[in-house]
Amino acid sequence: MNSELIREIVDRNEANNNGLISTMEEIQSKFGYLPREALEKVAEKTNRSLVDIYGVATFYRAFSLEPRGEHLVSACLGTACHVRGASLVANEIGKQLGIEPGETTQDDKFTFETVNCLGACALGPVVVVDGHYFSQVNTSTVSDILKKSVEGFDKVEVATDERIFPIEVSCPRCNHSLMAPDHQMDGYPSIWITHSYGLKHGWLRMSSLYGSYKSEAEYDIPENQVINFFCPHCHTELIGAADCTECGTQMIPMIVRGGGTVQVCPRKGCKGHILDL
């Protein structure tokens, strides 16, 4: 148990005047469940009694007090899904995973739960795995879905997926290209810039694929660290006027070849970006 991390989360949320639920959501997203120590820490730090925190944690289905598996499989059993055979689908999922709804497999790979409505009734029967929706599921497609979830949904084929395309960028100040053709990432030239945080100063490479968040850096950048970006040619700091839509940090602008700008969030782990072509 990482009590240091829990304390950090609670303190930050308290400082931002965030509510109890957002604090608990963050803990849940970090650990996958709400550990008992975490609830005790939250109670202590927020001057509430433990039973109040426990009451909130047991009230919402989104919170779990038990460790969850790597993948969360939710089968909808709402009315619209039910009449189209959702219970058969749920049984099939349970059979293939060898668990009942609400349980986690022995190898901690899957947690299976049933939900009462996901609000996507026209798509029913709906199964959601790790936030990915599968529509009109039947018993024969269950094994495919489970297989895909193990392989990972984020593995996309660059050639066929229209949402992903390579971009070429240059410095907004000196207009020098920031591309490094000799160093490829995802099969395309990477974006090469210099970065600094604290006393560290070194190179940083990012994938030029729009939609890929791969990056390599000379130094390991800790999660949530906001870093400063510099052009490797004119050495000016790249800093823009727009704030990140996800976390509010000032974003980094770059010019896109062919017209337009792209702005990325300089916070490690934040996926906020704006593409304006």
């Binding site: 009694s49 039973v51 047991t58 009230f59």
Partner: peptide, 25 residues
Amino acid sequence: AGAIGFRGRGENRSIGTPFDMKSEQ
């Protein structure tokens, strides 16, 4: 003291201590 409180919801709502353990409070 705040030793006991409501837990769960709907038909599973109950009164008791957190984690069903003897409360320190």
